[in-house]
Amino acid sequence: MAQMNLLQAINSALVTAMTEDEKVMVFGEDVGHFGGVFRATSNLQQKFGKGRCFNTPLTEQGIIGFANGLASHGSVPVAEIQFSDYIFPAFDQIVNETAKWRYRSGGQFTCGTLTIRTPYGGGIAGGHYHSQSPEAFFAHIPGMKIVIPRNPKQAKGLLLASIRDDNPVLFMEPKKLYRAAVGDVPETDYELPLGKADLVKEGTDITLLAWGAQVEIIEKAAAMAEEIGVSCEVIDLQSILPWDVETICESVCKTGRLLINHEAPLTGGFASEIAATVQERCFLYLESPIARVCGLDTPYPLAHEKEYMPDHLKTFEAIKRTMDY
Rank of each mutant, 00 (worst) to 15 (best):
A2F: 07
N5M: 11
L6Y: 12
N11V: 06
N11D: 06
S12G: 10
A13M: 05
G35K: 02
R39I: 10
Q46C: 07
K47T: 13
G51K: 13
L70G: 09
H73A: 12
G74V: 09
V78I: 13
V78D: 01
E80K: 06
I81G: 02
F83P: 01
D85L: 12
I87E: 05
F88Y: 15
F88L: 15
Q93Y: 04
Q93C: 05
Q93S: 07
I94H: 01
K100V: 07
G106F: 11
G107L: 11
Q108T: 10
T110G: 03
T113F: 02
T115D: 01
Y120S: 08
G121V: 10
A125P: 05
G127V: 04
H130G: 03
S131I: 08
Q132C: 13
P134E: 05
P134M: 13
E135I: 05
F137L: 06
H140M: 14
G143T: 06
R150D: 01
K153A: 14
K156Q: 13
K156P: 02
R164L: 15
N167H: 08
L170K: 00
P174V: 13
L177R: 01
R179G: 07
R179Q: 14
G183C: 09
D184T: 12
D189P: 03
Y190I: 05
K196F: 09
L199N: 11
G203S: 03
D205Q: 11
I206R: 00
L209D: 02
K220M: 15
A222P: 01
G229F: 05
G229H: 04
I235G: 03
D236A: 12
C249W: 02
R257W: 04
E273A: 14
E273P: 01
A275V: 12
T277F: 07
V278G: 07
E280A: 15
F283H: 14
L284I: 11
L284N: 15
L286W: 05
L286D: 09
V293N: 00
L296T: 03
H304M: 15
E307Y: 14
M309S: 08
F316G: 00
A318L: 04
R321D: 14
R321K: 15
M323T: 06
D324I: 06
Y325V: 10
